[in-house]
Design a protein around this nucleic acid. Structure first.
Lengths: 246, 246
DNA sequence: ACACTTAGTGTAGTTTTTACACATATGAAC
DNA sequence: GTTCATATGTGTAAAAACTACACTAAGTGT
């Protein structure tokens, strides 16, 4: 055993989930790889959005900063779920002798602290300081850079677990939403179908779900009533939690 | 903002919970602090057990190693729950101008990845390679070194959350146990009282709870039946999870 | 006016939860 | 060996939650 102390780069990586077209999507960034000898661009790759932690900030601060730099959004649901540090994390790239154009030394291990974040995709992403970010449906994610596939998998697990017990589905929707939209979020995240009447009965009991005197507009069918989530009420009644235990 | 990249020590810290005397306890180690000028020992402090991560191991490996070095135990319940890195983590010590005798540079920030671990305190702790480890009841923990109070708090939160949904209470008991002992574990961890009959009705439904043809011995009252936890059955029937949602 | 589409609603049977009290088996003390 | 002290082990009734299931209502488009 080498027993050298790992004293290495640390980063936060955010798995930013969005919900659109009845699908769960992840925000990913292109990374450019070039051939080490010819210096020509070989191809591009997809990675999660991450960044280093500065000396004067907490891990959470760093994650919010990454999120803001990438999406221009503030005030977003964000949760730390796991730290990753596989010794063979960079092997893939080293074997292939590609140069990574993000200024990191490819021989160093990176510890990454994983966060997942939920954003309503109707919140238009204004800025994206660094590189091209794209929404990719979860089902269409191919092979990502580093160990980012594993990080996404674990993030999804953490999200599924969380949504069963706490009302975070709202975070993926715009401020006002219909019950069918909400049900779809749960179905998409959990990967199950839910019965419409039973779903409505269940969340109808939750006091933090506020019915509005407003209806959907411009749809070619009976317009649905709109609802809001009240964070205030939720904080006051945390006892009665949303529990989708299967 | 400084914007210097944090490139610093990383460690794992384990919050090792044990259950004894109807109490939840934590395994802590003494740390010796001495006055920087006189070099005399000032006093001792309590810390969680932690260690650095080596280059060729995963974070989990490191946590199991710490656990083994400290307790001599293998095959123990262990779970990563959160990473910590407060910029002011070491301020307390720096202000007081104490020298820390564990070889760490007190000016460096330490990122610590928190694990919690459950062990049956009837498993006698054989070895303890480094320093004196003590079981301290949760209620009697004073001010710990670094940000370890916060880490313990978060570990307890994570434990409470986990025990509501998965059968990990068993990990705190010896192989054979009575239902009253099991109920006590739940009560102590959750900090609530539970109704004896309802508790038994509920776990009676769980197939991974195996009744034995054996009874308690040497007690001055009606001897209780002994039970075992079957990990095998649990893995096969993960659907019906233990859910103590209050 | 008609067709199309999604919204919205109720019930009966089953299971789970909750609250609650007394007889029983053992060791200890006498 | 009788009695005492102590923790074990058990059932029921009422309320709440869960499951499965099908039709009418309210809009838009033609």
């Amino acid at each position: 055993m080498a027993n050298r102390i790992l004293n290495d780069y640390i980063s936060v990586d955010c798995v930013i989930f969005g919900y659109n077209d009845n699908e769960l999507q992840v925000l990913l960034v292109e990374r450019t790889l070039s051939n080490e000898s010819t210096k020509e661009i070989e191809f591009t790759d997809l990675t999660l959005t991450g960044n280093h932690i500065y000396e004067d900030e907490t891990i959470e601060d760093a994650a919010y900063r990454v999120l803001f730099d990438r999406t221009g959004l503030d005030n977003v649901y964000l949760e730390q779920f796991k730290a990753f540090a596989h010794p063979d994390r960079l092997k893939k790239d080293k074997d292939r002798k590609w140069l990574i154009h993000d200024g990191r030394d490819p021989d160093k291990r990176i510890i990454s602290i994983g966060f997942f974040s939920l954003i309503s995709t109707r919140d238009i992403i204004v800025e994206s300081k660094c590189g091209i970010a794209k929404w990719i449906p979860l089902s269409e994610i191919g092979e990502l850079a580093f160990d980012h596939n594993q990080i996404v998998d674990e993030a999804l697990k953490a999200l599924r677990n969380k949504i069963k017990h706490e009302p975070i589905g709202f975070e993926l929707l715009p401020e006002k939403f219909t019950l069918t939209e909400l049900q779809n979020v749960y179905e998409v995240v959990l990967g199950t179908e839910l019965d419409k009447r039973n779903f409505r009965k269940k969340i109808g009991r939750m006091k933090y779900l506020i019915p509005l005197d407003e209806k959907q507009k411009g749809v070619a069918h009976k317009p649905a009533r709109l609802y809001m989530f009240s964070r205030d009420v939720y904080e006051k009644t945390k006892k009665e939690m949303f529990d989708f235990t299967v």
